[in-house]
Design a protein around this nucleic acid. Structure first.
Length: 906
RNA sequence: GCCCGAGUGGCGGAAUGGUAGACGCAGGGGACUCAAAAUCCCCCGCCGCAAGGUGUGCCGGUUCGAGUCCGGCCUCGGGUACCA
């Protein structure tokens, strides 16, 4: 018998599909549309298993919806601007554009053999001038609509390379190339007014019924709506202009526990004071020697500096609080100033604790809540926190206030906060305000490989948008990467232009846009990818929204929130219909494919041994295919293949194992053979090189096996740690299905197998439910079961085999076509109507009812489906096992869950 | 630090609060074969000869009944606004 030959069959069917134009999407107002979209990839060079998993899921949905009769739009493109292209330019001297387009070509070549239904006629890359030119048009319209503005904001500054760094380029607080300690610096940058939409974006989350709950929670938390009190402290002996210190708090109920006020090192008052206080200036400078990332700021040790200034407590004119500068107060949130209540805020407490230990500073800890009886322990440092926990996490209404300001008898946090606000407002102390954590979206990047911001700086007219007629504002090709910083800034002529307004010489904006802008509207562009305007309203009105969006959880917040904002901004500027205000009807977040990371510290710089010994080392990453001798979790037993080869060349008498032993015995500081370290699994990413690409599997077994394999076993939403084993099993299964086909072809097919008919309907129902519910692993398991049934079945199996082909089609379309053709199916299985299960065929006449005694399974009985509870009880009590265990006792209770289980309680 | 997830045999995993381990991988045994590969059949959580006991990261709770619900932890993963 001939094996199924994927290598021949797969290209054959792909050609047939292409020729039939099965997947080319055309607007057809008479048909219902279905838009399925996978998050498009960054063209890093190769697709990896994570991509394969993502696109196969999308393809299963697309093929299923096609079979259900929808007019399906299933496009694919490339999110092609970004830092890696510039890094490649830096390291390999290749132009970012050349590198990117080559990668796109390579990745397309990898994707095509997988047999996806992507409509490549709609494809584009965000670095195509035709795309980013339209993005510039959007920018100009949004600027005119007041959605964009400029302001100062902090960036990571590398003081040695004199360049702005991305958070990713800051490693342990140091620049990744220079190794210099990074500082915060202020720069004028462009912003989208996303915070104007805070309330709307938050409220609309309720309507996203088909989004994962966790994503909705994360987005809501990110927007971070809070109700609090804003008031100002009067500053004693204040510098001119700083007589009032504005603070915001979500805990005005703890106002009586205030023991200090704290301001951010970036607060205007801090900057004013440091002019006459060198010690404070030094402290502030030290505080700024941290990157801008929230993680870095929040995990930094809490530090403070007493300014010597005092403020007056708003509820007691005789109560003075010291003003500190503290590194944990963020200028970006609230007013950049707080009051500290160490008894009821963990951060404030940590701060006081730390300052007391380090500096001997003494700040009071004043509890405002009376703790529940018995919880007021000896350890005064922690006791207040305990009482806090009791009040809030269990909400037990046991806390009480010790103040006399009208909110002292309230029990719960929210009520207390509200009462405190009411009291303060009534007494002119401050006002209740609603604040959001969400900040405006800064899009300025001081980099080359991005969409140029289409504005001009004119000495006379100021900032002027480009005219739309001059779009696209193209990136220059002749750029150099021989020095740090923005190549657009260094370019001799590019920035020189004339003012669109007055015609005088002017300078172009050299900042480019955040790549999140590119990915915030690509889904809309797919509906009319060649339009001469950003979108075509007729096309957008037909195809939008995306019915099913699929991508990694890592995009749960930023990309999805920016896209939701962008849909609103495009609506406001007339580029999307109102109906597309929430662009993604259903969202599915797949888990990530993870892999161990292999890394070593290789020398950089000088050539002589002495130089090398002294020179800096840089952490470099290695591809899984470059290492060998893996033992999970082991460090000494993992080596670079190249190192093993080198050792074998040096010592010809050694075999591979011997060479590894030599390597294993090297000192960790050995400069020629640094040890390879294995760090725990993380999502596959090109920058960490822990990627595995699907080509080996496709090469060895074909696309169907690769597709079947990534859909098997792991639930789609869960992370999977990649292991090479398993593809073989998938291949064996597909071969087995084909063997059944051949057996059917070679033996006479007569008679009917009623069990097979029932099993067929069962399979239709289960596989359909699996696909609809994004439980592809379960759909696959059901197909395994159905295969087992088919292998054993009697009678004519041809009809059942055709159903098998249809059910397999979304996952393994090529093999499915082959089976369909062999079993006499009409036309293409990819174009066949999805089968429907007959509900009558899904019912069984009798069921097995397990019997529990005190919750433990002891026996079972077989009963007709229609049986009544009384008959069940009789049968249960008559059961020999039950009688034996009862031993004459009368059960206390008999619980019958119809059709499910019986529990006898004794 | 903060926000969000996840944790079940050797492995991937299944299980509307109702028989824990479907289905698959690996493994063991057998059949076929001169032999191997391929294929087919059977077994397969742990302890135990068995009866039985025990078991879903840990501690506690609710329930006739908990992998599932509640409280408290631990570990791992994602995000943390300039990686995409």
């Amino acid at each position: 018998m001939a094996r199924y030959n994927a290598r021949v069959a797969e290209p054959k069917w792909q050609k047939v599909w292409d020729k039939a134009g099965l997947f080319k999407a055309e607007r057809d107002d008479s048909r219902a549309k279905y838009y399925v979209l996978e998050m498009f990839p960054y063209p890093s060079g190769r697709i990896h298993i994570g991509h394969t998993r993502n696109y196969t899921m999308g393809d299963v949905v697309a093929r299923y919806k096609l079979a259900c009769g929808f007019n399906v739009l299933h496009p694919m493109g490339f999110d092609a601007f970004g830092m890696p292209a510039e890094n490649a330019a830096l390291e390999k001297g290749v132009h970012p554009g050349t590198w990117t387009y080559q990668n796109i070509a390579d990745m397309k070549a990898q994707l095509r053999p997988l047999g996806y239904t992507h409509d490549w006629s709609r494809s584009f890359a965000t670095c195509d001038p035709e795309y980013y030119g339209q993005q510039q048009a959007l920018f100009i319209d949004m600027l005119a609509a007041g959605l964009i503005y400029r302001k100062n904001a902090m960036v990571n500054w590398d003081p040695v390379d004199m360049t702005v760094l991305a958070n990713e380029q800051v490693i342990d607080g140091k620049g990744w190339r220079s190794g210099a300690v990074v500082e915060r610096r202020e720069l004028t940058q462009w912003f989208f007014r996303i915070s104007d939409y805070s309330e709307e974006l938050l409220a609309a989350i309720d309507g996203l019924k088909d989004w994962p709950e966790k994503v909705r929670i994360m987005q809501a938390n990110w927007i971070g709506k809070s109700r609090g009190l804003q008031f100002s402290f009067a500053v004693k002996d204040a510098p001119k202009g700083f007589e009032a210190l504005e603070v915001y708090t979500t805990r005005p109920d703890t106002l009586m526990g205030a023991s200090f006020a704290a301001i951010s090192p970036d607060h205007p008052l801090a900057k004013e004071l440091e002019r006459s206080n060198p010690a404070l200036a030094a402290f502030n400078a030290e505080c700024r020697r941290v990157g801008t990332s929230e993680e870095a700021l929040e995990t930094a040790e809490k530090r403070g500096f007493d300014t010597g200034l005092k403020v007056i407590h708003p509820l007691d004119p005789n109560w003075e609080l010291p003003v500190w500068v503290a590194n944990f107060v963020l200028m970006d949130y609230g007013t950049g100033a707080i009051f500290g209540v160490p008894a009821h805020d963990q951060r404030d407490f940590d701060f006081v604790h730390f300052m007391a230990q380090k500096n001997g500073a003494s700040l009071e800890i004043i509890p405002v809540f009376e703790p529940p009886a018995g919880e007021w322990g000896q350890d005064t440092a922690y006791t207040p926190m305990k009482s806090e926990k009791v009040r809030y996490s269990r909400n037990t209404a046991t806390g009480r206030f010790q103040t006399n300001f009208g909110w002292d008898e309230l029990s719960t946090g929210d009520e207390a906060v509200a009462a405190a606000i009411t009291y303060c407002e009534a007494n002119g102390i401050g006002k209740g305000v609603t604040k959001y954590r969400l900040r405006d979206w800064g899009i300025s990047r001081q980099r080359y490989w991005g969409c140029p911001i289409p504005v001009v700086h004119c000495p006379d007219c100021g900032v002027v948008p480009e005219s739309k007629a001059s779009l696209p504002i193209r990136l220059p090709d002749d750029v150099t990467f021989d020095r740090p910083g923005n190549p657009l800034d260094h370019h001799p002529t590019w920035a020189a232009t004339t003012c669109p307004n007055c015609g005088k010489p002017a300078r172009r904006e050299t900042d480019t846009m955040d790549t999140f802008v590119d990915s915030s509207w690509y889904f809309a562009r797919f509906t009319a990818p060649r339009a001469k305007t950003p979108t075509d309203m007729a096309e957008a009105s037909y195809w939008m929204n995306v019915d099913q969006y699929i991508g990694g959880v890592e995009h749960a917040i930023l990309h999805l929130l920016y896209s939701r904002f962008f849909a609103r901004a495009m609506m406001k500027t007339g580029h999307l219909p109102v109906s597309a205000i929430e662009p993604f009807n259903a969202l599915f977040t797949q888990g990530m494919v993870t892999h161990e990371i292999y890394t070593s510290f290789r020398p950089i710089g000088g050539e002589s041994p002495e130089q090398r010994a002294r020179s800096l080392r840089r952490q470099v990453y290695h591809l899984p295919e470059e290492v060998e001798g893996l033992l999970p979790g082991s460090q000494a037993r993992t080596f670079l293949k190249a190192d093993v080869d080198k050792v074998m060349a040096l010592h010809p008498q050694l075999d591979r194992e011997g060479a590894r032993d030599v390597l294993a015995r090297q000192h960790p500081d050995n400069i020629d053979f640094p040890p390879v370290y294995v760090t725990p699994t993380a999502k596959m990413s090109k920058s960490k090189k822990n990627v595995v690409d699907p080509d080996d599997i496709i090469e060895q077994y074909g696309a169907d096996t690769a597709r079947w394999f990534v859909m098997s076993d792991s639930p789609p939403e869960r992370d999977v740690e990649w292991t090479a084993s398993g593809a073989d099993g998938a291949w064996k299964h597909l071969q087995r299905v084909w063997r059944i086909v051949e057996e059917v072809l070679e033996t006479p097919q007569t008679g009917e197998d009623a069990d097979l008919t029932r099993a067929t309907h069962r399979a239709i129902a289960d596989v359909t439910a699996g696909i609809e519910g994004f439980a592809f692993n379960k759909a696959v398991a059901k197909l395994y079961e159905f295969t087992n049934t088919l292998a054993r079945a009697k009678g004519d199996r041809r009809a059942a085999m055709r159903i098998m082909a249809q059910l397999m089609q979304p996952m393994t379309p090529h093999l499915a076509e082959e089976i369909w053709a062999a079993m006499g199916g009409e036309g293409l299985v990819s174009a066949a109507k999805w089968p429907v299960a007959d509900p009558a065929m899904l019912m069984d006449s009798s069921i097995i009812l397990p019997i529990q005694i005190n919750g433990k399974r002891r026996s079972e009985i077989s009963v007709p489906v229609e049986i009544d509870n009384k008959s069940v009880e009789e049968l249960v009590l008559a059961d020999p096992t039950v009688q034996r265990i009862l031993a004459g006792q009368v059960p206390k209770k008999l619980i019958v869950v119809p059709g499910r289980i019986v529990n006898v309680v004794i």
